[in-house]
């Protein structure tokens, strides 16, 4: 069965090698208290989902980890270094893709490297490789408006991968993607987590999605936002992608999460 450890991030730090530590983070937007004293550890090389109803502060937490907005209190550590702003150790994948509409796929994917001052031929070679990895070969010269939602997010993913950051932050990356593409994406993401030795922090509001792809699921509850539960699926992680949705543990965890979230659905 799943091991369910208690809330508030005190999940035995001894046997976990954390890539990212969130310690006592609070965030107020004026009157609105988006996060209160939130602590959470993100194991290295694994995918952790932040799951919760909308408005509970998932995006806020992710942006604080990214260094895009400051926390009101508390601190973030990445490999023992305190976060003070955006850095090359993290790459962000945006819910609305955030592609440059005036630039083609190749320039968009290499844009992160361009900003880091990597030379043109070098960065395009790297971009070329990741465009292939996400299955977009042949679309290098296409512009974002010529692509479907799913393809645009593949561009966003390739851009994040090509800067070779240790931590990938994904904010509901598949929510604007149609169902079939989303399933394909989820399978690809599983393979990615296995093959690339990176830490993934994945925001979603879909219970099934979280259980399907996560090594660890942190359930966030609103008002004030806190981690209410941390769930680590164990038995089906090693099995083939097609079998996950039929595994009894998968179904149990989905039910269990729904049981704790249903009170918060109006």
């Amino acid at each position: 069965m799943s091991q369910t450890s208690d809330a508030f991030g005190k999940a035995d730090p001894i046997d976990i090698d954390s890539a990212v530590s969130v310690r006592g983070v609070s965030k107020n937007y004026g009157e609105v208290e988006a996060l209160r004293d939130l602590s959470l550890e993100f194991p290295r090389g694994q995918l952790t989902s932040l799951l919760g109803p909308s408005g509970c502060g998932k995006t806020t937490l992710l942006k604080i980890i990214a260094g895009l907005i400051p926390a009101t209190a508390g601190e973030i550590e990445i490999d023992g270094r305190k976060v003070t702003g955006p850095g090359p150790d993290r790459a962000f994948v945006f819910q609305d893709f955030a592609l440059l509409p005036w630039a083609n796929v190749l320039r968009n994917v290499s844009f992160g490297l361009e900003l880091r001052g990597v030379g043109k031929s070098e960065r395009e070679a790297v971009a070329e490789k990741y465009i292939g990895n996400v299955g977009l070969s042949g679309f290098e010269k296409a512009y974002p408006h010529e692509l479907s939602g799913g393809m645009r997010q593949r561009v966003g993913l390739a851009r994040a991968l090509s800067v070779d950051a240790q931590v990938l932050l994904l904010d509901e990356p598949f929510s604007a993607v149609d169902e079939q593409n989303r399933r394909k994406f989820q399978e690809d993401l599983l393979a990615l987590v296995r093959n690339e030795n990176k830490t993934f922090i994945f925001v979603t509001h879909s219970i099934e999605e979280a259980v399907y792809i996560s090594d660890q699921i942190a359930i966030l509850l609103p008002r004030p936002s806190r981690v209410s539960e941390i769930i680590r699926p164990t038995s089906f992680r090693g099995t083939k992608a097609d079998n996950i949705r039929r595994s009894p543990e998968y179904l149990d965890i989905v039910d269990q999460i729904w049981a704790s979230l249903r009170n918060y659905v109006e």
Partner: peptide, 14 residues
């Protein structure tokens, strides 16, 4: 301007 475009540039260190 789309806010997330600005955030994207910032997050990649512009």
């Amino acid at each position: 301007i789309n806010r997330s475009l600005v955030e994207m540039a910032r997050s990649f260190g512009a």
